[in-house]
Structures are given as C-alpha cells and as structure tokens.
Nucleic acid binder design. Structure first.
Lengths: 215, 215
DNA sequence: ATCGTTACCGACCAACTAGTCGTTAGTATA
DNA sequence: TATACTAACGACTAGTTGGTCGGTAACGAT
C-alpha cells in the first residue's frame, strides 16, 4: 500500500476546488463577510476567515475584490436596497386604527428579530465611520424615507378623523423610538428573551394607542 | 557653533521624562484610552497611541497595566461608577408636572451631549462582547436602576394625582426610548446639529406631556 | 551627598495578516 | 480531443503591533 501524498490522518474534508461564476460566488462572499464582520468587527476579521466561510481561498477572494475595504463597502451597499418598511401593507388596516397600530409595531419588531438586519445595524454603528458616504446614503434611503412615509400615513389618518393629532403625528420618529431602545439593548446585551420582546411590543402598542386613538 | 547631538530640524518637543505616581498617571492613561478606543475601536487602537496620548512610552504604560485588554477593562469599569440620572434633582420640580417632565428630558439629553458618555456608549455597543460581565454589571447599575427609579417616581406622581396613569408609567423604559433613538443617530451619523437636538428635545417633551398631563 | 526605589524608556522580538503572484485546474468552445 | 480562458490556489513578502527586558533617571529618605 503506497503512502498517500498527504498525511494519512488528515481528517479535514478537502473539497477539491469549486469553480463558480462571480455572479454566484460574490453573494457567497458577502454573506460570509456579513457573518464575520458583524461577529468580530472590521479589524479583527481576517480575509482568510471570510474566504474560508465563502468556500474559497484568500487568493480566490482577491480575484473578486481588490481589498478588504472593498468587501466591506460592497457588503453595506448591498444592504441599502432592502426596503425596511412596506407602508403599503399597512393600508389594508387603515380602517381600524388600533389594528393599524398593531400591524405597524409588528412590522417594526419583525425587523428587530431579523438577524441580517441586526448584523447590518451593528456594523453601521461600530464601523460606519469608514464609509461616511454609504452611511449617509443609508440614512436617506432608509431612515428619512421611513419618517416621511410614516408622517404621510398618519396625517392622512388624522385628516380622515381616524386618530388624534398627537405629537407623534408631527414627529413620526417618536413612533420608531421604542424600537431603537430595544435595538440598543440587543446590540449591547445580545438577544433578548422572547418574553421581553413581547412585553416591549405590547408596551409600544399601548403607548401608541394612548397617543393616537380617539377616546 | 557645535552641531547638536540631535538632528537640528527636530521640531517635536522632547519632554525629557515626566515621572508621575500611579494615582495620577493611571487616570491619564484611561482618559487617553477612552479617546483612542472610541475613535478607532479596540483592535485598530495601538498601545503606542494610548501611551503617547497619556504622555509616556509603551514600556511605561506596561508598568501600570499588564496588557491591552486590562486597559480596556479598567476603562469600562471606571465608567460604571458615574451616576447617570440624579432622580433627587427632579423632586424639586415635582409640584408642577410639566416642569418635572421638562427637567427630566433635559437631564436625559444632557447625557447625550456628554462626549465621555457617548464614547463609552459606542464602546459598549461595538466592543462590549469582550467583557460580558462588565456589560451585565453596567446594565444592572445603570439601565435597570434608571427604569426602576423612573417607575417609582412616576407611580408616586400618579398616586398624588399629579399625572395620568399612562402606559409610560407602567413601562418607564418608554420614557427613555426617544433618547435611544437620538443616541443611535449620533452613533451612526456623528454629532447632530444643535437645531435637530433641540427639536428632538421639544418633541420628546410634547409626547410626554400628552401622555402624562391631566387634561 | 548617597542610596534605594520605581516610574519610565526604547530597542527588540515574535506573531500575525493584508496583499502578491506564478501556478493549477475546472469549463466552455471548436 | 485540443485549446483558450479564468476562477482558484497557496506559498511568500512586507508591514504592523502586542508584549519584553535591560537599563535609565527622577525623587524621597537618611
């Protein structure tokens, strides 16, 4: 029996070589980068780790991206396109104000439990200063757009006599703020138990009902 | 004129050697570490940078701390002792509910504009996972304590007939949440212009008045 | 003055890692 | 099957940085 050309006790699975087109490989790399970057931050993440998770070697990765920072940039830019809030789906409930509020809060909290969104948010806060223009773009496309849409929606409800003209109608970001609080807790303390999340959701609904519902 | 023993164009001020007692040097090191860590994150910060900002060399720094992680730990632990909210100062205003609310919101927003607090918060979110026990301690000492104190205060106001029994009385964290929203914006987008900060403050007051004031 | 203590210096080392590049091997086309 | 193309490999380089250590100098005590 000939001795193998590799040490015989190699238990690792040596996937021979997987050749993929850039269109399928690049998303794999970005998925891997999201996991690695958000787990350890930009500097502590090694290119080799991203490459390994994406199923290729560092050299292979450099065939698709010219540097670590380019991977990071592409990663954040990809997350720009995701719509955060589909206001349209709220219109189905616009007859009953309470169910509209509940649906809205549920939509917001669903974002909180989305791991991809959480990872992106963590990167945005801790490493966003590397790409100020991308962050500014995200602010426009996501945060400001959300505030605007909420404002339009609520003012229409007021005009239709469905709800009171409250401070949160004039300042729609107040509606989002309880979610910001929960997000901060999740970033600082890790995932919250479902019970606490449900309580946060209910408290949020209570407050909005108190502010908006006609007595 | 004899040539100096150093290159003549050395413009840097070579402070000969400043010998300080640990009691005065260590705070200097932690101050420097807060600036450096919060500006660039844990991994991107070099020991030499902290040392230079603290006015000594790397070797000198290692006379006080046995490693980079120990500096970081001492830094976060120091910030634990700072009281975040002096509930007592609110009691002076407890006669007039509106002025109590305004004073409370002003206290919270003052924290937001405190650069030390902002830097600590940034570190807590982006690098807190390195020291989970310190973070847990911070949660107990600061966040939970604040929620508790707010709850006590508000329930007393309700009992005295000063304000309504609102959702925010049952869930005091809702009162803090607009501040969380502003904090997130500051972390992601840098310092906000004073005008926006004032608008956020006013909106916050408006909402709380709407929720709490007897009509 | 001298002596002991210790905060501090700075050259050095060892480990780590971003990025390079000549080579290898899948895949498509003829 | 032969050939061209290119995704992928992996050993290597160059630069960076956490940590060490023998020595130096400031300061208090006698």
């Amino acid at each position: 029996m000939p001795t193998s050309d590799k040490p015989a006790d190699e238990t690792e699975t040596r996937t021979p070589r997987q050749r993929l087109s850039p269109d399928t490989r690049i998303p794999l790399i970005l998925d891997a980068a999201l996991v690695e970057f958000s787990a350890r931050g930009y500097n502590a993440t090694r290119i080799d780790d991203i490459a390994a998770r994406a199923g290729l070697s560092k050299g292979g990765l450099y065939a698709h991206f010219s540097g670590k920072d380019k991977v990071f940039e592409a990663l954040l830019k990809r997350s720009l396109v995701a719509p955060v809030l589909e206001i349209e789906s709220l219109l189905d409930h616009s007859a009953d104000m309470r169910s509209l509020i509940e649906h809205l809060v549920d939509l917001l909290h669903a974002q909180l439990t989305n791991p991809v969104m959480r990872a992106t948010a963590r990167l945005l806060f801790s490493e966003g200063h590397r790409l100020p223009d991308v962050v500014a773009l995200w602010r426009q496309n996501t945060l400001d757009a959300m505030h605007f849409q909420l404002g339009v929606l609520l003012r229409r409800c007021v005009a239709q006599g469905l709800c009171k003209d409250s401070a949160v109608v004039r300042h729609p970001w107040l509606i989002l703020s309880p979610v910001a609080h929960t997000l901060i807790q999740q970033l600082a303390f890790g995932t919250l138990p479902p019970k606490e999340l449900r309580q946060a959701r209910d408290a949020h609904v209570d407050m909005l009902c108190e502010l908006l519902l006609m007595t």
